[in-house]
Design a protein around this nucleic acid. Sequence first.
DNA 1: ACTTCCTATTGACCAGAATCAAGGCTGGAT
DNA 2: ATCCAGCCTTGATTCTGGTCAATAGGAAGT
Lengths: 243, 243
Amino acid sequence: MSCAEPKRCHHNQLVNCGDCRLGPLCLPIALNTAEIDQLDDIVKRGRPLGKGEHLFRQAEAFGAVYAVRSGSFKAYSTSDDGTEQVTGFYLPGEILGMDGISSLKHCSSAVALETSTVCEIPFGRLEELSSQLPSLQRRFFQIMGNEITKDQQMLTLLGKNSAEERVASLLLSISSRNHHRNLSPTRFRLSMSRAEIGNYMGLTVETVSRVFSRLQKQEVIGVDNREVEILDMAKLKSVANVT
Amino acid sequence: MSCAEPKRCHHNQLVNCGDCRLGPLCLPIALNTAEIDQLDDIVKRGRPLGKGEHLFRQAEAFGAVYAVRSGSFKAYSTSDDGTEQVTGFYLPGEILGMDGISSLKHCSSAVALETSTVCEIPFGRLEELSSQLPSLQRRFFQIMGNEITKDQQMLTLLGKNSAEERVASLLLSISSRNHHRNLSPTRFRLSMSRAEIGNYMGLTVETVSRVFSRLQKQEVIGVDNREVEILDMAKLKSVANVT
DNA sequence: ACTTCCTATTGACCAGAATCAAGGCTGGAT
DNA sequence: ATCCAGCCTTGATTCTGGTCAATAGGAAGT
């Protein structure tokens, strides 16, 4: 990847929070310019991670949360018997790593699904700064509340919905998150495998694959390997059981 | 219920955080005496709620979080089509209502499963006080992090585990939470119905009932309606697939 | 006591997704 | 280009848990 104009480059490390095009999605919402500068001072921007590289691993000491700047991540936890459970996919502007806050140990691992960059936000310094900036404290409470809400919606999905409803919901979720980031809500490339989707949604690879095939046959979506196009948004929503 | 000595009564409204026997489980952990007094000033202790009374309802404005003082609550969300999903059970010392923090609207309802009391903690004032007391801020981040961790474990349970594993896990969860509160970890009364358990665990009433019967036949537990005794803790843990 | 309503149990049957088992694609490496 | 490994798809079969249905047990009120 070539970076003619560093300030605009996806993976460059010079951008600050004030200039970041993800500002309106990320931690800085509701902060004024001076506050953003203060936040900016504690944020560390690391080198890009390659596909398969870990951001943190389960049982490691918790020290920071991370904002995805580009690319995408999968969070998963491993149980004693070695089975893995995907607990979330994280796209640019989203915050991950909050699972470690309660015990000061990460209880999940996070791995890059493609070449990705993050902003590392050391938690201790975030706490300090939050004490000084009420709007940052509020914003972070809000982000954690969001994570709780999201997980609880996921519980409903896993507890009550069929395979088709689950897969359709995931596609709609990615679609709307892309939309927020000014990307196409109807055409995108999945950065995760069928197996990872299945794991996340409590299904097997085979079932996910069959649902994709069925939805394609009904012309609700077009699928070419990981490339997805939503052809009939209304129909997809009705399959997902949402209005 | 008679209350000879008000200070010790389960449902009385005079107790303050400093004297509350739930202190070591609840919000005040890690606060010193002076800090607890400050917290105490913002806490409102309401009248007892009867079984079936709501603490808050979905879509209502969010204004406070609640610490269970006695009794128990069920949190659930209702979808457009009217189906309900139980998102959690809350026992004394546990905090509920955090689902409203992100959008300032409750996205679940909470109902008392039996006669119960709560401490209401107005969120705006908690935010203010958190800015002044770093240990309170930290504690509240921790409580929210706990909720996230708990929900994610629940995702694993719903995504991967069988009916027996799910029900056994719930019994173990209640057992250990009772234990923390110095109640018997092996004998307790369930405050929720089989239907509510099933709903929470993504199962039907019939399946829950069958699992209870099977576990009883194998002498892992003894069940008499809502009265449960764990007869073989080790076996129950192996059924639940935990070590 | 008796009734009524609600909750729980149990059985018979069915359906959706898991499992088992081949093959077919794809993209990266040589 | 060719090969290979991992990913994906599809089919056949099995099995867990859901659905439907009937009955039993309990609690609260008359």
